[in-house]
C-alpha cells in the first residue's frame, strides 16, 4: 500500500518536472498547457481521496514555489478540482469512460474559471482575457485528454518475463 502512495508522489513529481521543464516549449498564444490537471483527474479515478489530496497539495505547493507571486493558488485550485471531482464521480461506475471525459472537461473548466477570476482581479476583466481563457481552455483540454489516456495506458502496462 505504501508503495502505491510513493508511486503516486513520484508520478506527481514527474508531472511537476514535465510541467516546469518541458511544457513551456508548447506555449501557444501565450498559454502554457497544464498537465497537472490531467494528473489530478487521473488520481481522482485511481486513488483514494485522503492520500491523493495530500499529494496534490504538496505538488501544488511545489509548483507554486516556481511562481512565488501567486504562491498557494495552484495548490488551492488543484485541491478544489480534486474535491469537486471526488464528489462528481460518485454516481458513476469506476470504469465509465464518459464520466472520465466529463471529469476532464469539468476539471479544465474549474481551472480556467479560477484562473480567469484571479487574472481578472489582478489585471482587469477585458475581452482579451476572455479570448485567452477560451484558448487556454481548449488547449488545456486537448493536452489533458492526451496526458490522461497516456497515464492510463502506462498504468496498464505490465512487464512479463518469458522463459
Amino acid at each position: 500500500m505504501i508503495w502505491k502512495h510513493i508511486w503516486t508522489f513520484i508520478l506527481g513529481l514527474l508531472c511537476f518536472y514535465a510541467q516546469v521543464l518541458l511544457l513551456p516549449a508548447f506555449e501557444l498564444f501565450g498559454v502554457i498547457p497544464n498537465i497537472l490537471i490531467a494528473w489530478v483527474v487521473y488520481l481522482v479515478w485511481t486513488r483514494e481521496m485522503t492520500p491523493a489530496l495530500i499529494v496534490i497539495f504538496i505538488i501544488g505547493l511545489l509548483y507554486d514555489t516556481t511562481q512565488p507571486e501567486s504562491f498557494g493558488m495552484h495548490a488551492l485550485v488543484l485541491l478544489l478540482i480534486a474535491i469537486i471531482l471526488y464528489q462528481f464521480r460518485k454516481p458513476f461506475e469506476s470504469e465509465s469512460v464518459l464520466a472520465r471525459m466529463l471529469s476532464l472537461v469539468l476539471a479544465n473548466v474549474i481551472f480556467q474559471v479560477v484562473g480567469w477570476l484571479v487574472l481578472g482581479v489582478v489585471y482587469g476583466f477585458g475581452g482579451e482575457l476572455v479570448i485567452l481563457s477560451l484558448i487556454g481552455l481548449g488547449y488545456n483540454l486537448a493536452i489533458s485528454f492526451v496526458v490522461f489516456w497516456l497515464m492510463q495506458l502506462v498504468a496498464r502496462l505490465r512487464i512479463v518475463l518469458v522463459e
Binding site: 481521496m49 485522503t50 489530496l53 495530500i54 497539495f57 501544488g60 505547493l61 507554486d64 514555489t65 511562481q67 512565488p68 507571486e69 501567486s70 504562491f71 498557494g72 493558488m73 495548490a75 488551492l76 485541491l79 478544489l80 474535491i83
Partner: peptide, 26 residues
C-alpha cells in the same frame, strides 16, 4: 476534515501581500 484543512491552509498561504507570498515561497 482533511480537505477542509488543506483548503484552509491554501487560502492562508494565498492571503497577504505579494511580498509575503514571495517570502513564504522562498
Amino acid at each position: 476534515f482533511l480537505p477542509l484543512a488543506l483548503v484552509l491552509v491554501s487560502i492562508l498561504l494565498i492571503l497577504g501581500s505579494t511580498e509575503g507570498r514571495v517570502k513564504r515561497a522562498s
